[in-house]
């Protein structure tokens, strides 16, 4: 996060950061890593990208290489085998980078907490920016998680993103309203 707000940086640096944030927030590229998940969250992430939910309308694209990615989407608890890989994938991503932990397991280990091969949640290994709870989280919740991240990067686009969310069906309209505490719960650290 330190690349976004640095203390009294030179002017060119601020400009560059703003440009980088602008391009990133308009089209974040995701890379997905399953560090020991049951597949439940993985298929919901795929469902999020396919026609019914179509996350691509927010400019989001899932692609293969960590070196091209802005956002690492993690699913599952971290197993002892995959901890190393997870750290390596995170290290390979260029700055600035963000991590979204999808599912109860990636938050705390979930149902598998206490099993001998489980280290715990994703934040045992790498820093996490947004947590999406659920077992498995509905595609709407995953969209919401990504939107929370995007709004954090570009506060002045918040309204536009909210409108897109309502259109995507991820949030019910204002009248029914999404509870504030709920939004906080889903929100960033």
């Amino acid at each position: 996060m330190d690349t976004i707000t640095t203390q009294s940086p030179p002017r060119w640096r601020t400009m560059l950061d703003r440009l980088r944030n602008w391009s990133l927030a308009n089209s974040p590229w995701l890379v997905h890593y399953n560090s020991g998940s049951c597949n439940g969250c993985d298929i919901e992430i795929l469902a999020t990208l396919t026609p019914r939910y179509d996350l691509e309308r927010l400019g989001v694209k899932l692609q293969g290489s960590p070196r091209h990615a802005d956002v690492l989407v993690c699913t599952g608890p971290v197993t002892r085998q995959s901890a190393d890989r997870l750290r390596r994938i995170y290290d390979q991503m260029p700055e600035p980078k963000f991590v979204v932990a999808v599912g109860a397991c990636s938050i705390s280990g979930g149902a598998f907490r206490g099993c001998y091969n489980i280290l715990g949640g994703v934040d045992e290994v790498i820093p996490v920016d947004v947590y999406v709870p659920g077992c498995a989280p509905r595609p709407e919740a995953i969209i919401h998680g990504v939107a929370v991240l995007l709004k954090k990067l570009q506060p002045d686009r918040a309204e536009e993103i909210d409108r897109l969310l309502v259109e995507a069906g991820a949030v019910v309209g204002e009248e029914e309203g999404i509870d504030e505490p709920n939004a906080e719960l889903l929100g960033a650290r």
Binding site: T79, Q81, C115, N117
Partner: peptide
């Protein structure tokens, strides 16, 4: 294989 090995069978015993 084994990246997703979580130890469920042992976990079941507890």
């Amino acid at each position: 294989l084994g990246y997703a090995h979580r130890g469920i069978e042992k976990g079941a015993e507890g």
